[in-house]
Design a protein around this nucleic acid. Structure first.
Length: 421
DNA sequence: TCTGGGGTCCTAGGACCC
DNA sequence: TCTGGGGTCCTAGGACCC
């Protein structure tokens, strides 16, 4: 048996935690650059604000004082997420952290618990009491059904936040009244095709012939169908797999029209990506970058391009990655466009303690390089932006806008001035 | 005027091997 | 006239997730 625990309107709930006067108020949290809505309190949903709409489309509510708005504060959400996960780990033996706001629980070792619904309520109470974040709990025989149970727990208030689909008859009833688009793994494209063949509800999908559907769609959809029938196809993974790709990309605060700030941005993203790489204890042997104009603009010249450089020998050295990224930029940058976004991607990742070196090229992981990076990271862990490379830019006025950022309630950096003192 | 960031998995097709 | 069978590896692109 699995449970899925999912925090309600997670980012919005985090913000409200420190602003109790906003309880029962419409609250939204915006994406980076204050671009789109990425989290909505129930009251904001009631205003008709849809997920992922551009902020300018709902700005009116804000200006009329009907809507409280926050820029995303990932340091805060990450910190509260860790507290939620730790609390779950104290309650059940197996926890798979699935995203910042949800976790699958393995309940097989919980045979002594008389009633799983009771366990669900215990989880809700504990997390609410200890952390103050509301959660919902879905329980079922497969992950896909647990997701669906969780959806029901949030959707139907009479469940009080807990749905156990293993109860006789519950699964059939829920599948019948749930739109197929709510099923985990069934996205927009697939929904369109399914409707064309008269599959509208989760029950319709569960009834479809799995073999035929694999041929017509994919093995992924076949697995979803089996999971809806209670046959587990997706395993439980307590230890997250090591990352296969690391990406750092940002939309600029305003469009960039010349090379110099683009170079600063690429350097900055390369350094950030290299930092993440070292955090993961991995090396990269492939550096890619991409740049693009606004794909949504109707009356603008569009340009998007990317480039990749495979390294002969793997590295985690910010300097090497930065230099390569910059050279790649020279190759694809074209004058005359209004650039909106750029990114640096590291691929072909290998563990740092067991990597494939090159027979004919010098090993880039020299003691000197490793030591320097270690020192760089140690300084920057204690002092925010304590050490950076000259070319990253000091002012960075292309960096994202966060006009509605909340304070660092639970995290703190020592500022650079401490170093100077 | 104004639209995020960071990932995973699967498939088809090309190039290549014996 | 007529040209096999069985594989692997890599990449780009699509679909999906939160």
């Amino acid at each position: 048996m699995y449970a899925l625990v999912d925090c309600n309107s997670f980012y919005a709930s985090c913000e409200r935690l420190f602003r109790p006067e906003l309880k029962d108020k419409a609250v939204v949290v915006l994406s980076n650059n204050d671009g789109c809505v990425v989290a909505r309190s129930a009251e904001a949903k009631a205003l008709g604000i849809k997920m992922a709409v551009p902020f300018f489309e709902v700005r009116e509510f804000y200006e009329r004082g009907q809507l409280q708005v926050f820029s995303s504060n990932y340091a805060l959400y990450g910190d509260l997420s860790a507290r939620v996960m730790t609390t779950l780990e104290e309650l059940v033996p197996e926890v798979e952290v699935y995203s910042i706001d949800e976790a699958f629980l393995g309940l097989s070792g919980m045979r002594t618990e008389p009633d799983l619904t009771e366990l669900g309520h215990k989880i809700i109470k504990r997390i609410n009491h200890w952390i103050g974040i509301p959660v919902g709990v879905g329980i079922a025989e497969t992950k896909t059904l647990a997701k669906l149970a969780n959806y029901a727990a949030k959707h139907y208030p009479q469940t009080q936040g807990v749905v156990d689909l293993s109860k006789p008859g519950w699964r059939e009833r829920l599948l019948k009244k749930t739109d197929v688009s709510e099923v985990w793994g069934v996205g927009r494209r697939t929904v369109e095709k399914l409707r064309a063949e008269d599959i509208y509800t989760a029950a319709d999908l569960a009834r479809a012939d799995a073999e035929t559907m694999r041929r017509r769609y994919s093995v992924v959809l076949e697995r979803t169908i089996l999971e809806l029938r209670g046959i587990p196809c997706i395993g439980f993974d307590e230890q997250p797999n090591p990352k296969q790709q690391i990406l750092c990309s940002r939309t600029f605060s305003h469009r960039l029209t010349c090379l110099q700030p683009m170079q600063e941005a690429i350097r900055e993203y390369a350094v950030r990506a290299a930092e993440k790489l070292r955090e993961e204890k991995r090396l990269t042997s492939s550096v890619s970058i991409y740049i693009r104009t606004n794909p949504n603009a109707k009356f603008e010249m569009k340009y998007a391009n990317g480039a990749t450089y495979p390294l002969p020998s793997p590295t985690n050295d910010s300097r090497v990655i930065m230099k390569i990224a910059l050279r790649l930029l020279q190759g694809i940058y074209r004058d005359g466009y209004r650039y909106m976004k750029a990114g640096v991607i590291l691929n072909a990742l290998q563990p740092e303690d067991n990597y494939q070196a090159d027979l004919f090229n010098p090993d880039l992981c020299t003691t000197k390089s490793l030591q320097l990076m270690k020192t760089l990271d140690q300084v920057n862990q204690r002092f925010h932006r304590g050490l950076s490379f000259a070319g990253q830019g000091q002012k960075q006025d292309w960096a994202m806008q966060r006009q509605h950022l909340s304070p660092r309630y639970t995290t703190s950096w020592r500022e650079l001035k401490v170093v100077r003192a």
